[in-house]
Amino acid sequence: MTDTAEPTKAPRNQWWDIWGQFRTHKGAMICLVIFVTILLGVAFGQFLWSIDPTYIDIRARNQGPNLSHPFGTDQLGRDTLARMIKGGQTSLAVGLVAMLLALFLGAFVGVVSGYFKRLDGPLMRLTDLFLALPLLPLLLVMVMLFRQPLSAAFGPETGIFILMVCAIGITSWMPTARIVRGDVLALKEREFILSARSIGTSNTKMILRHLLPNVMSPIMVSATLGIANAIITESALSFLGLGFPPDFPTWGRLLFDSVDYLQQYPERVMWPGVAISLTVLSVNYIGDGLRDALDPRIRGR
């Protein structure tokens, strides 16, 4: 770690070193570009491509790719490109928010169980129990049970969004918790923690100022894996017909709807499928590059 004791002349930030190492990983760089492109396209695409994704033009139904509809139209004549952009917003939003929730839970459980000896045993047993749950079936059951009440309380879209995010977040924090706990246990024995304690640092300060910044790298790597996992899970649920309502597109839902027309219009499944795969692939590659870049043993070389 670089010495930042004198902020006036701190020559190189640690994060610049990490960026420098990350740039040498070619696959990760290419995938970062792809991921940012997808992110921007999905976020701002609706301003460039202004067709309403819910607009039904029954005369233009089942069209292949052409100039006025670059991705074609579906069985009701809705523009597929517009629906892909709208669906991407939902899919990526679910992925990002669910990942943040899982990270928060995982980091919290990990830090607490690593730092407070008395809570370590119970919290780790809890983690083991969660790891032994059959996740996909339970997710399906959760969606089935809470879809109605939540839709009634928050409206169909927000309700399902909250449900998806919570369900995925609650079922995917365990790996992060384990990794963070291991790192915290190792950090706790280091001298800087001892000296921080000797000047009377409180527990809260100790965790926020000294421990959390030092476990940032495993947290960031599990963040990338978390996004990938959350996007796949959401699409899988939508694909099984247990996700967002039918008129509300997500990539998984678009894929699910296109499967019915597989015989007549096989190209229709490609758009959402490729979008999901490309996003997940690029996120995984970024995670790979990040893992190398955050490892100080590799970075020095």
Binding site: S235, F239, L255, Q263, P266, V269, G273, I276, L281, N284
Partner: peptide
Amino acid sequence: SMIGFSVPTFFTGVLLIVIFSVL
């Protein structure tokens, strides 16, 4: 292998159906 575990099974499956049963 990166592709193998990034591409979800519900897309590989559908893709195979497109190639081997439809085309």
